[in-house]
Design a binder for these strands. Structure first.
Lengths: 146, 146
DNA sequence: TAGTCGTTTAGAATGATTCAAAATCTCAAT
DNA sequence: ATTGAGATTTTGAATCATTCTAAACGACTA
């Protein structure tokens, strides 16, 4: 059902973990695989249930741990909307998020780097940015459920 | 300690409530007053404790209710960062937020409307935006605690 | 084979927020 | 002024995502 990681993906994972001095474990591989398999910004719980199919007995706490690890080593981004459960996104290119209020789905929106540059310019001189998050909220008209 | 609302502020409040068919109550006036008195993006709990000084006996649930009401009628904006407690902001002009990681403080950043316009342009044609949130995360260099 | 250290696990704990039900208040109409 | 209907407030319990704790496990090294 869920494809294994390909060579390149496995390498990213191993490299990122190694770089921050952490180990490769079956749990981490599966959680990462689940994230790549369906890039729909799943919640922890969704990741957990998808991963259970491959590894019954996996615990929810481990999924929390794995995802936290990935965020820590820059493999994955967190996506928050209001106070809803945190969602996870393996897209590392700079992008914004659009949350469709009618479906609850989150879509990635490509973010031209000029806009990012302009944004950093509106900050006072002594403000140093580490992260910029841009999120849209609204509805899609046609809703061809893309 | 906390100034009363001035004529204009009181009007905004009454008008906004009236427009959405809701009543004016002492609790709502005080909560709104607290928000205007110190525009430092307080959490519900902070608003609650500040308001208690003027109205002992006020309940936390009421503060939740009032703030929800204000958000509902567009008087106040919510500000979320990661999974921290929601903060509240009575600044209605379009602006972004900068969260200083070293102090935890949130600063308003004026947002030129050209940028907002550009942002809406990066969306696919059938995406209709209702809200755009932009938040920076980082540190201030000088930290003259402005 | 034993020791070390990071990881996983289950379940308890936390903390922000929401809910439920009863008491109270506001305001328009009398 | 008084009343009544409906909105609001209050208290305390409930919920839910997330974090914590402590024990078990595993991989690797001495």
């Amino acid at each position: 059902m869920i494809q294994n990681l390909n060579k390149h993906e496995r390498e990213s994972l191993h490299e990122a973990l190694a770089k921050s001095g952490q180990k490769i474990t079956p749990q981490r591989e599966i959680v990462y695989t689940v994230l790549l398999a369906q890039r729909d910004h799943p919640t922890v719980d969704e990741v957990y249930h998808r991963a259970l199919e491959t590894m019954p007995g996996l615990s929810l706490a481990t999924v929390y741990n794995c995802l936290e690890t990935f965020v820590g080593c820059g493999l994955v981004r967190q996506v928050n909307h209001e106070r809803e459960s945190t969602r996870y996104c393996p897209n590392l290119a700079p992008h914004a998020h659009f949350r469709d209020e009618s479906t609850g789905r989150v879509h990635d929106i490509e973010l031209p780097k000029e806009i990012l540059e302009q944004l950093t310019k509106i900050l006072p001189a002594d403000f140093e940015t580490e992260t910029i998050e841009i999120s849209f909220q609204g509805r899609t008209k046609s809703s061809t459920q893309n």
